[in-house]
């Protein structure tokens, strides 16, 4: 039952067009790292530049963008086209459906984001894996939190993608930049804090302590998971016309 749910979710998420688009977004960071390396930078600056690249572009752009697309599609696309009916018409606890969808989606985001971040880190620093690994772990943590939030959002509104993008661009991009106090509600800041603490090079100074970021991040993930289960248990399917 669980294996069937896993493979169905994975196949639904990774349709050809979406996979290609997400792969291209992930390739961007690699491209920047390669171009940087080819420009023959001073070794002393390489670590700082790469740290900024992984934090600002990897965690700040790549991660939320991929997470909003995958997270809102994990259940949302089936809700949109009505195929969720075949899943709901099965004797499967709704909590299990949400758990598997969340794990698969977070896994997909991790592979699509953390892997390019790790590789970009190695390329950018000229062979050292530690910086890339730190931000890859942070990306995996952020992937779980983002995906949980966007998956729950897709069960609350049919405009989850637009609202999710607005959250990433307006809240995390603008509001959290202007008002430090709002950063506690920014998933990006949670991931940055973890990445910063693991990298320990001071290239990026996160606003939150890693401990608080981890605590809040897991709490948000749990809350979003609970909300998603509650919403899925109450999803109503009206049919087309009658």
């Amino acid at each position: 039952m669980t294996a069937a749910l896993l493979s169905l979710t994975l196949r639904g998420l990774l349709n050809r067009r979406r996979t290609l688009l997400l792969g291209l977004i992930g390739a961007l960071i690699l491209l920047v790292a390669v171009i940087y390396r080819l420009s023959g930078p001073a070794e002393a600056e390489a670590s700082t530049f790469t740290g900024r690249l992984l934090a600002d572009f990897g965690l700040g752009v790549l991660l939320p963008l991929v997470a909003v697309i995958v997270g809102t599609a994990a259940i949302g696309s089936e809700l949109d086209d009505g195929t969720i009916l075949y899943l709901l018409a099965k004797p499967i606890p709704r909590m299990l459906i949400v758990a598997i969808k969340l794990l698969v989606a977070a896994g997909v985001v991790t592979v699509l984001v953390a892997l390019p971040i790790l590789l970009a880190g190695i390329i950018g620093t000229g062979g050292s894996a530690s910086l890339g690994l730190a931000y890859a772990v942070a990306a995996a943590f952020g992937a779980l939190e983002y995906t949980a939030v966007f998956l729950a959002l897709s069960l609350v509104t049919s405009r989850a993608l637009v609202i999710g993008l607005a959250y990433v661009v307006v809240w995390e991009g603008v509001v959290a930049g202007l008002f430090a106090g709002t950063r506690i509600f920014s998933v990006r800041q949670h991931a940055l804090a973890v990445g910063d603490a693991l990298a320990g090079d001071g290239a990026v100074t996160a606003e939150l302590a890693a401990g608080s970021a981890l605590l809040i991040g897991f709490a948000v993930t749990l809350l979003a998971f609970g909300l998603a289960v509650r919403r899925l248990e109450r999803v109503e399917l009206r049919g087309d016309s009658n």
Binding site: M1, A4, G12, D81, G82, G239, D240
Partner: peptide, 24 residues
């Protein structure tokens, strides 16, 4: 259901088979 939506990426056999597995 009356609605036509069925996972288009599955073959007929895969669709029925996944239903069987999800039903346990």
């Amino acid at each position: 259901p009356e609605r036509e939506a069925v996972h288009p990426f599955l073959t007929g056999r895969q669709f029925v088979h996944s239903s069987a597995r999800l039903q346990g």
